[in-house]
Amino acid sequence: MVAYFASLASLDNNFEDLRPRRPTKVSPRSSTSSSPRNNAGEHSPTSQDSSDILQLSPTTSMTKLPVERTRSHSNSGNSTYSSSSVSSSGSQSVRRNSPLESPQPLERSIREMARNYVINIEKFLSTNNHDENESFSEFLKSECNLAPLEFYQKVTEFTTKPEKKELARYLIKNYIKERSNSEINIANNVREVILKEYKECKHNNSQVSSNIFEKACNEVKLSLKNDSFTRFVASEQFSKLILKKFNQANKSLDSNNSTEILESIFESIGSLSPLSSPKFSAHSHPQNIVNKSLDTIANSQIIVTPPNE
């Protein structure tokens, strides 16, 4: 095979016309940043009693091997609930060798309840939802993809601002122009229309129209919604956010109905999915899930720390 490759590589095929000029080498990033592998605190399926995996036959292991989706830059810390869909199948789950590391029932019920809601990205990211924006942006950082959210937020600001020129210039310089620092992923023609319109405004010294970024923003929003956001809603960050909001509400509302609190949190950022209606699956209705898991909480040693007790 080596010989085969060597012969192929040495062939002179006159590709010069289409061979690109020698590109500059992509240089490795300086080693100062943390390694993406540094998943301290994360629990991998290998950390379990490995006999579960090892006794599977080749065929079953193709479908049953534990898998988890992980975040690239793990948020180290003590939260241990793995979002793995496999963990719901029972024995193959994260290691549990100390109560502190066990998945918390409330977090699990949040996760199950989340499945019954379709989270609306516009509602979720509305400007006064500070925690929500913060949480999603933390998630996007772990995916090396903060730029689209920043762009989305800044365009929202842009549309309401009376004086637009300065911000338009900033957005174009940092997000729209090719090879700009935080370039967003938009189609060629969308970018060109913006650049052309901006150039004309500059030339005529006229006001920049408030919808100059509309197409780009819609495209970015669509990518966020269909790609990143679907992963986010299934992520640990999302559960943590809901947990945080739960604790806040628990403290301030003086309500002791956990189900209601959770429902109101979810309703503020999304709506019940058609699938969760009783005709599909009575037992998975959020009400039942929460009731069930609150029982679990009550009978469990691990109780979510009540705030300020």
């Binding site: 091997l65 898998v67 988890e68 090396c144």
Partner: peptide, 22 residues
């Protein structure tokens, strides 16, 4: 769906190893 950013998943490949696909 146009992928943006970087995402990964891990799964066991036996031999005490995990494969992390990015």
């Amino acid at each position: 769906t146009k992928t943006i950013g970087i995402t990964d998943m891990k799964f066991d490949v036996g031999d005490g190893k995990q494969l992390r696909l990015v």
